[in-house]
Design a protein around this nucleic acid. Sequence first.
RNA 1: GGUGGCGUAGCCAAGCGGUGAGGCAACGGAUUGCAAAUCCGUCACACGUGGGUUCGAAUCCCACCGCCACCUCCA
Length: 493
Amino acid sequence: MSSLHIYNSLTRQKELFVPISAPYVGLYVCGPTVYSDVHLGNVRTFSSFDMIYRYLVFSGYKVRYVRNITDAGHLTNERGEGVNRMESQAKLESLEPMEIVQKYTVGFRDICNLFHLKPPTIEPTATGHILEQIEMIETLIHNGFAYEINGSVYFDVKAFNAKHTYGELSGRNIDELIAGYRDLDGQDEKRNSIDFALWKAASPAHIMQWKSPWGMGFPGWHLECSAMSTKYLGKQFDIHGGGMDLKFPHHECEIAQNVGSCGMAPVRYWMHTNMLNFNGQKMSKSLGNSILPIELITGNHALLDKAYSPMSVKFLFLQSHYSSELDINIKGLQDAEKGLKKLMDARANALLVKGQSMVETEIDKSIVALAALCKANMDDDFNTAKTIATLFEMATIVNSLKDGNIKDDQVSPSSIGMLQQTFETYLIDVFGLSPLTENQDEKLDDVLQILIQIRKEAKVKKDFATSDRIRNELLEKGIQLKDEKDGNVSWSL
RNA sequence: GGUGGCGUAGCCAAGCGGUGAGGCAACGGAUUGCAAAUCCGUCACACGUGGGUUCGAAUCCCACCGCCACCUCCA
């Protein structure tokens, strides 16, 4: 069906993508924990998987895209004092925990819309799947991979490792892990320091708690993804994605839970997106150096010079590979803004140019080759950076046609159609980008047309002082006039 | 300490065995009343350092230096 190759984190190599039952593809991505605003790093990850989802759909697959909402309020410290995030934030804001969940879920979806991220086909919540999680725990206990103590249930990593392998995804072995934990002397009820919670007994003070066979409590934070991916995508599905920082322990635990309960490796292709850095350092909530998407869009941040559109930011993301670390800075944002504008202008210009040639020309051959290259780039582990480079080459052809550097009898009508289609497919459909100034004000245009007319009359009279004054003063207000070659005048914000 | 990754021209960033993709910046030319935009060209004899393998290495191997991430809540 296609020759898509994906870098599989599990096998550490690029592999031909073969779905379990084509044309259907199951895609699971770890979603946000909705106890505070998503930060820009989250947006990069979700943008990457949005592009991956869109490209799979473009490639003809029927994709079920599941991305969870973590709303159960897990512990901030797995081994330690168990502070419930949702509850501590609720106290801070004087709100009911589920009001926090609602507030930040809505906020997350708003940001997704701003960045043109398509909603997943299923967006399940952890609190909506307590029963499924309890069932999975029961199976794990039955299979001998989990034990109950004082109303809590833990996954027995050593018991699991005796029959299966723990640590394959992240390249760790359990002896080293146990050794590494030793100095953090164990306080708790776990048999081994590397065991992780499947269910935690809740004290009466806990607001978010549910009834279970082991008493009142709440699920461990690795469990929801295992339970929900199994429910909606089956015991084995095609692609599981998430940020690099989830590889260990989250994804490792997920694999153990699935293998332990379902008896098979849950995922064929593991995909991990890399971190977004800021000034060379990981942007993270705990370091407090994160930029909120809304701060970037409004320009309301001490480290920003101005506002940047979500599309510019997304374009910056797409100019590097999803698996590379990306360092964000003002220069990069400015460059991305200009680059995106150039491509969007070329897309618009492609709709204006015509081809007259009846035979295939050298230019036609270039266009066909470039269009094919776009697809080949994307099939090579979603190489958006290379695809964008290819689009820039096509932009040069389009602009040359528009300015008459290439004549319309040097290119055939079908090639023009291919140019238009390629810009549309990749910029709009696959990358989910849109022009920077989409909806222009009609009234503003009316006013500007008057000024443009006055300026034209001044130019005819060689009154350049007046014509330049109109152009310069408009530019100061952020409106740029451009005298096109054909005598028309265009404007942009 | 363990695990994984990175170091490519002024900046960003592809490439992952066969003489530097692309963007931005800068400079020159074409075009323009002047600009902007666009086109052509230059900067470009690059791949952290030192070894090795190879007919050939940015790409593979070894050592070293520097940076980052994970091992603890985070995409």
